[in-house]
Structure formats: structure tokens, C-alpha cells
Design a protein around this nucleic acid. Sequence first.
DNA 1: GCGGAAG
DNA 2: CTTCCGCAACGCCCG
DNA 3: CGGGCG
Length: 302
Amino acid sequence: MGQVTIESREFALSNLDKVLWPDDGYTKGELIHYYVQVADYLLPHLRGRPLVLTRFPDGIHRKSFYQKNAPDYLPPWIRTFSWYSEDSQRDIRFIVAEEAATLAWLANQACIEMHPWLSSIESIDNPDFAVIDLDPSPGSRYQDVVDIALVVKELLDNLGLRSYPKTSGSAGLHIYIPVEAVYTYEQVRKFAHVLASMVTEVLPHIATIERAVKKRGHKVYVDYLQNVLGKTLSSVYSVRPRPGAPVSTPLLWDEVSQITPAQFTIKTILSRLRDYGDLFAPVLQDRQNLEPACHKLGLPIF
DNA sequence: GCGGAAG
DNA sequence: CTTCCGCAACGCCCG
DNA sequence: CGGGCG
Ligand SMILES: [Mn+2]
Ligand SMILES: [Mn+2]
């Protein structure tokens, strides 16, 4: 029942009319349709990267779970990557999405979010980007997030580094600084830490790197601690399990202050993609050298 | 969403 | 035969 | 060293 063939991969889809977004009436079928439509833009950002998934079989308000280990019933044509986790002392078999059919199969599993690693299989210990994750607290305004993001950009400009913003899909923003895959996670994290500290010095009333939630108050958390092996951010074009079915969306720096993250959803993003193309395509090409910036900062890590 | 364990 | 349960846990920082 | 965090 419900057999489909996508690029010569044949498999079954089920319960296409099951509502996953009750506030909007959006169904699992619409989720699958979205991921197939966006595949050409999304797949380059997933290719070669271990994936962490979040699944919501009974809708976004019901019980959900993370999945990193591939289930035994995974179709054999879906790529996986086995990786020995030192700490849990076992192999984890990660899914690696490289075809539209894989996205459709995963969406049929009620997988809403796609979280790729910052490093790829080719060089698993070396991230391809430094990331700054701006997490608003209850009581922060989007404009605070914008002000902080623009300071991050200005600091990076002055260091000679290009940076790329996207909505997280929720209330915050993610800033990517693509780098050559030659640095360790620790090196990239230290760089991001210094950057985050500088932002809190410029905007102490709205930005913090305080990890204790209670001590953040209404400030925006400038999270540099995602720069760790095995930690992830939601991918560009990943759907989020929130009312409206918002999508993590690449932005132009000039429009960061003009938009509202909720305007980009599984229903609106395709026309934007046709107009702008993939604004995050350069993130996969722009392999920057961190050394000059670290030298300017007096960072003794290289 | 689904397989396997428990009831 | 029906229901229940698991699907990630760990690196990092601070006190 | 334990606890909180994402
Ligand atoms: Mn975030
Ligand atoms: Mn975060």
C-alpha cells in the first residue's frame, strides 16, 4: 500500500493524512512533499554528514524522540556511517542523507528535524564551520537577537572573516563561519568563545554567555558551545516542530532586521528559493583560514 | 512508526 | 493477542 | 567533584 518510486528507489509511504501540526492541519504527506521539493537545496548540506533526527510520530505536541542510531529496518540503499563512541563504548550507526528518496523515507518516519554534524565523514575530527547560536531567553525580543547578530558580523568583518546568518526556525539565529577542515573542535570552540565574549562586552545589557539559565534573565544566550564533536544545529531547510511548521532559513545580512523568523514555513520557503536560490551555498565553498584572525586576537592556539 | 519485550 | 517501551546521552564549564 | 546545560 502506498508504494512510491523516487529516483528509482521504491518504498512504501503510510498514513499520509495523519495530522502532525494540529494547529495548522498540516499532515505527514505535506511534510514528505516539502522535503522532496526542497531536496536539491537541502541535500548538499547533509551530504557526508552524520545525522541526528527528531521524530514526532503523533504530532508536534505529543511524545517525541531523538534518533542517532539507524534502525535495523533501515532500507539498505540508505547510507550509514558507523562511529565508535569512546564514552558509551559502542558503535553508533548514523544515517547519512544523500538522496531525495532518503528524505522522503525519513519524513514518512515522522522525522521533522534534521541535525547534521559540523564535520563530515571525510574529516570527522575537523569541523567545516564555527557556529554561533543565538538563543533568546523568555523575555528577549527578536530585535535583541538582531542587534547581537550584527555585532558578531561586524567583529568578524574586522577580523577579515565572512559569516552567514540563518533563522533557527524558532526564535533565534545561527551564524556560520565556514573554515578549512584543518582545525580541531577545540580550536574552533576557543575562537568562538573569544568572539562570544567580545559580543557580551559590546552589548552587556542584552547578551550573555552565562550557562546557568537562572542567571541569564531576559538576555540572549550567545551559545558558542555547539562547537563540539557530536553536537549539532538544525540544518538549513530543516522543518521545526512548532505551530506553523517554520523552516530554518538562510538570510542576507541586509534583511536580518527586516524579517520575522515565523514567516518562513514549509508553505512559503519554495518561492523564496526560486527567487534567491540557496543563500547558504557559499557556506560549503568558502573555506576560510582562521589563523590571521586568531593572530589579531592574540589567540595562542595555533 | 515500529520492532521487541512484557503482560 | 494487546499493551508498553525505547528510540541520545555526553562534553563542557562553573561553583 | 557534582550539577546544569544544550
Ligand atoms: Mn539555538
Ligand atoms: Mn543553543
